[in-house]
């Protein structure tokens, strides 16, 4: 599976739920596949997306909050998994598009390419509802279950990196205000 196909699956199951995308490729793909009011694109703060998503999930417990992380970013903030486990937000759906590389900096292999198993790390951190998928069909099933049942959910989706879309022009301020207003 490629990340855009996976993102399309997730988006097809959403109404107005907030989606917070990791900097770089997840943000580029999410924007290209369908900009929406409830999308937050993150820039510059590598590793922050899992923590930002937890903050949104705790502040808005009445709706599902979807985080689209990357393996490189999550490896930088593994402690966030333990913090998520300690808080147990039932509404958080944390998806990692694991391409096993630092995609935006030239495709250097990350530690998931040499055996680090992020699903096992999440389980060990104390997150019970964990799925690891590598086909679109398995992703569909995992996302359907995550949207229907309480979490926190952690889904690792193994993706192949084949094509890139260009970096979109997004005004950070405008995106932030729009995202924030989507909660009203």
């Amino acid at each position: 599976m490629e990340r855009p196909e996976g993102i399309r699956v997730v988006l097809s199951r959403l109404k107005n739920e907030p989606v917070i995308a990791n900097l770089g490729l997840a943000t580029f793909d999410l924007f290209a596949l369908g900009d929406r009011r409830s999308n937050l694109y993150t820039w510059g703060g590598m590793g922050m997306v899992s923590s930002i998503g937890l903050g949104v999930a705790l502040a808005a417990p009445e709706r599902k909050v979807i985080v689209m992380d990357g393996d490189g970013s999550l490896l930088m903030n593994l402690g966030s998994l333990a913090t998520i486990a300690r808080q147990q937000p039932p509404n958080l759906v944390h998806i990692v598009w694991d391409n096993q590389q630092w995609g935006e900096t030239g495709g250097q292999p990350t530690h998931t390419s040499t055996g680090t198993d992020l699903a096992a790390v999440a389980k060990g951190a104390g997150i019970a509802r964990v799925a690891s998928v590598s086909s679109l069909k398995a992703l569909e099933e995992a996302v359907d279950q995550a949207m229907a049942e309480d979490g926190p959910w952690f889904i690792v989706a193994k993706v192949e990196e084949k094509r890139r879309v260009p970096c979109p022009e997004v005004m950070i301020e405008e995106n932030l205000v729009r995202f924030r207003n989507a909660f009203d």
Binding site: P18, I20, L40, G45, G47, M48, V49, S50, S51, I52, G53, L54, G55, V56, A57, L58, A59, A60, N77, G79, S80, T83, L176, F179, R180, F183
Partner: peptide, 13 residues
Amino acid sequence: EEGIGLCTGAYMG
């Protein structure tokens, strides 16, 4: 540093 992300997300909410 996690806390900076958490405060950012919570502010959004």
